[in-house]
Amino acid sequence: MEGILAIWQRDITKFFRDKARLFGSFTMPILFLLIFGGGMSGTMESMMAGQLPEGGSDFNYIEFVFPGIVAMTLLMTSVFSALSIIEDKDFGYMKEILVSPVSRVSIAVGKMFGAATIATIQGIMLFALIPLLGLSYDFMSILQVIPFMFLLACALSGLGLLFASVIRSTQGFQMIVNILVLPMVFLSGALFPINNLPTWMEAVVTVNPVTYGVHVMKNVMVDVENTPTQIVEAMGLNLTVFNQEVTVLGAVLFIAGFTLVLILLATQSFKRANA
């Protein structure tokens, strides 16, 4: 336990000490929000209004995309924070950790929690923009979504850990992660609905953990019950996998299971490691 805490605290301390990183992590999600929110809302909203004559004009794209942007921020930060593993290897500190009696599970979990905490903090920072964007989410639903954001961030940073444990160079890691992150964002329903995709893309959507993360975030934050059914369908708020409607609970369980598997895999890689 102490080991997890120590590894976690080290990464958090270093995050707040790195001014450039701090600035970047404040600004990047805001940029996404401005570009996607501002740039796409006109198109998306007029499309909806055209498609759905009654009620379509009430559609607010920003309200739809906001949870998606939060999920995207979580993804980016979680996966890239795993870079700290490669840095630790390069600068030798990983050796200090690996020769210590800290259990290998604790190393994996500590690193995962560190990345997930940083990602969640960034996600929460985005919530501060809600009033500025003229959005209104239920305060309770925001409180509910925060623990889930942490879980989702754990799953995603676990993915980063796994890649960091097999890739040796910083540049290589960044390349691979970029290739990985883009389809994960675009094929998750975070930014646009994922209806009527070709079959092979459907397959990617189905195995993409971000899909389930976005699904939960949108369903918790957007007031689905008071949204016209056509809009719910048009915006893909009802996720179906293998002809089964995915419930919020089901999606949460999927993410939790995914996280556990990644912890096990990362632990194995630390067991084999000899920095």
């Binding site: 102490e2 805490l5 120590a6 080290r10 270093k14 030798g92 200090e96 210590s100 009696p101």
Partner: peptide, 30 residues
């Protein structure tokens, strides 16, 4: 691991942290 201490030839300190923080972390690891 708990019985041994290692002084490597290469640096394995965290340079972004203070001496105190490096030592505290070590106490916690062990």
């Amino acid at each position: 691991r708990a019985s041994i201490g290692l002084i490597f030839q290469e640096n394995t300190l965290d340079e972004k942290l203070t001496a105190n923080e490096n030592l505290k972390l070590h106490c916690r690891f062990y």
